[in-house]
Simulated scan of single mutants.
Amino acid sequence: MDEPDFRFLAEHAFDMICEVDSSLVMSYTSPSCEQLLGWRLEEMVGKGPDVFVHPEDLPAVAMAHEALMRDGYDRSPTVVRMRTKPGGYKWMEINARVVSKPADKQGYHVVLVMRDVGFRRERAADSRSRAAQGDSRASTRGAHGQASSEWDECFYKTFRLAPVPMFIATQPVIGLVDVNTAFSDTFGYSAADVVTRTAVETGFFSRLQHERLIATIKTLGYAKNLEVDVRHHDATLRHCLASAETISIHGQRCILAALQDLTEQRHADGDLIAALESVMSDASWFSRAFIEKLAQVRKRNGAGTLAAELTDLTQREYEVLSLMCKGLGDSDIAAELSISSNTIRNHISRIYDKIGIHKRGAAIVWARERGVSVDAGHVEKPAGNRRR
């Protein structure tokens, strides 16, 4: 990622983003640092953890630094107390990752992502205290402040524990702010891999799909079941449905997105179509009941999401497709409709282009899913925006 891109994402993240050198001396911190701890950028640059971390937590920092140098990333977050400018300390959860310097510079640097987790510890301590004392009185905090804190905690826990892969990103550029555990488990990216980077820079979205998702959200305000290919950390592609809503977090306009992995289902469908194609040179032996059952199974499994519908076909194309469903070959369809085989092949080619399918067996299943009749006699296309 270019330096301007990194700074843009860091400056719009609600977590605190820092850059330190190999000695953990601060070289950059995002504006959220002043909101969380009260320190300005110039007050932190050039200083190490001994200035800002509670003395009792410095051994934990040293251990985490040693593991970071060995593995290149945090296997688990480090939680320490960070000194605030007004006085006192805040509990901060830190994720870190080593990033190489460009070729013209020496060494490496470390990107730190810090999150305030004090509210979680405070509530846990409050709960233990009330339980020990048998005190059922309400918290001394105001009702509004308490409700807001509880909602923040509820959202954070729900996001983290959701079984569906999810991520939070900034707008208008999809710059990753956070990912949940299911996202890491499904696609192989840890939070340190993606936070402060765009979806394209990370590589799990192509630029085209990134632009499609942005355009959809800009137009509708949300996205639902948008088909995307997500690149796994191991470079394999996962076929997914993406849904997203716009949300506001600490005043920052963001996207909350969920991904449904359909890869295994697609593989199963592909195997089925491949087997079907291997015998479709003579489809006459397929019974109507078999074709209908096959179409029902595919519909239950989520097939039929193509935008094309029967109304996109002309009357003649519909007639040709219906005869294909009856198991007739090109020459038989030509005889049935009293036109040449070349004309039939042209019709079939246009059908394939319109429905986004390029194999006979798949086209037959597509047609049966949409109720194409194979009854003898005149074939009439369903009513709609009929095209000639």
Rank of each mutant, 00 (worst) to 15 (best):
R238E: 02
W285V: 10
A199H: 00
R253D: 15
L208N: 07
Q209S: 13
Q265A: 12
V297H: 04
D261C: 02
K224T: 12
D261W: 01
S190D: 13
G203I: 04
D193F: 06
S206E: 04
I255V: 15
R238N: 02
T196N: 13
E211W: 01
R238Q: 05
V228G: 05
F286C: 13
D269R: 09
A257I: 01
A258M: 13
D229Q: 10
E211M: 11
S190R: 12
L256W: 10
Q209L: 01
F204T: 09
I255E: 08
E227I: 02
F205A: 04
R238M: 01
G251W: 05
N225H: 08
A258R: 05
A257F: 00
R288K: 12
A274S: 10
Y189F: 14
T216E: 13
T186W: 00
T216N: 05
S206V: 08
E201M: 04
T263N: 07
R253C: 08
R298Q: 09
T236Q: 10
V297L: 11
I273G: 04
A242G: 02
R288Q: 14
T263W: 05
A242V: 07
K299N: 08
E277Q: 05
R253H: 09
S248M: 09
G302E: 06
R197C: 06
H250G: 13
E201F: 03
E211L: 14
S190P: 00
L241P: 06
E264H: 10
V230T: 09
A199K: 00
G221E: 05
